[in-house]
């Protein structure tokens, strides 16, 4: 963890809209999560606003990724996971019995820590999600694939090799392809789990630019290890420690004038 003295952190993120004006898209209420008998998240309550970037920060094992995976129920894949409390998206409890997980995941996209393009062509990678939604028309597909690649700032680099294997792209390109794949099906929310942690600084910068661009259309929740990254791109930041939400506020506030001592210690690099 690079130690970042408080005064050197540049907070370029703009102030969020007026506090009073904000609505809530994802509402986490009293959420606790257990792996078997171990509690991984404790009583989290947190609102997430639409069309802003919210960053989750905290030391390894603090539960930030686990919380992220609650939003599209990827935790369901693990045995022995038990959840208390509620997560509401647009006011609807996504853990209620009649929720179709697959429908949920179509509307809450996800980008993983390690880029995971399918072993198919660039084009097929993006078309896959669209085909799942029943898009069959070739012209439509072509158009959406191009749009998504343009939105992910990848079009110019891959337009000549759309039909060659996605595994031939560089790491950064693969990750942007995964982002393009996620936005192609037009989710409302995009979850990003340390999307740039495996990339070099230049590729990271491009992903960050992309995120700032995407927030005009999507609500983005990003887990990051890199505090400068959180400072640069997010509007709100939530700091987690040992499965608990320590502080959640405007990013500028968290990085310049945190309320909690723990938060201050962490963002100034005194632990973690």
């Amino acid at each position: 963890m690079p130690a970042a003295p408080l005064k050197n952190v540049t907070v370029s993120a703009p102030d969020g809209p007026d506090d009073s004006a904000k609505e809530t898209l994802i509402e986490v209420r009293d959420l606790s999560l257990y792996y078997g008998a171990t509690r991984a998240l404790t009583q989290i309550t947190l609102p997430i606003c639409p069309r802003l970037v919210t960053a989750f920060i905290g030391p390894s094992g603090c539960g930030k990724s686990t919380l992220l995976r609650c939003f599209n129920r990827m935790n369901d894949l693990i045995d022995n996971v038990r959840i208390e409390g509620a997560v509401r998206i647009s006011g609807y409890d996504i853990y209620s019995r009649d929720v179709d997980v697959i429908e949920l995941r179509k509307r809450v996209g996800m980008v993983f820590q390690k880029s995971n393009p399918f072993p198919k062509s660039v084009y097929e990678n993006i078309a896959y999600g669209l085909r799942l939604q029943g898009h069959r028309n070739r012209a439509d597909l072509d158009q959406i694939v191009e749009q998504s690649l343009r939105s992910a700032a990848l079009w110019d680099e891959v337009k000549d090799r759309l039909h060659s294997s996605a595994l031939g792209l560089s790491g950064g390109q693969q990750q942007r392809l995964c982002i393009a794949r996620a936005i192609a099906i037009k989710p409302e929310i995009i979850l990003m789990d340390e999307p740039a942690s495996a990339l070099d600084p230049i590729a990271t910068a491009r992903i960050e630019d992309l995120i700032l661009d995407l927030k005009k259309q999507f609500t983005i929740v990003i887990v990051t290890h890199n505090m400068q990254q959180a400072a640069r791109i997010s509007d709100y930041t939530a700091f987690f420690y040992l499965g608990q939400l320590v502080e959640h506020d405007r990013t500028r506030k968290i990085f310049t004038n945190p309320t909690q001592k723990q938060t201050e210690d962490y963002v100034t690099g005194r632990f973690g």
């Binding site: 990827m74 894949l77 697959i102 179509k106 996209g109 993983f112 896959y128 999600g129 995964c178 996620a182």
Partner: peptide, 11 residues
Amino acid sequence: SYTQGALALGS
């Protein structure tokens, strides 16, 4: 990760 990628897209 392949499976997870597909599931996250709603398959």
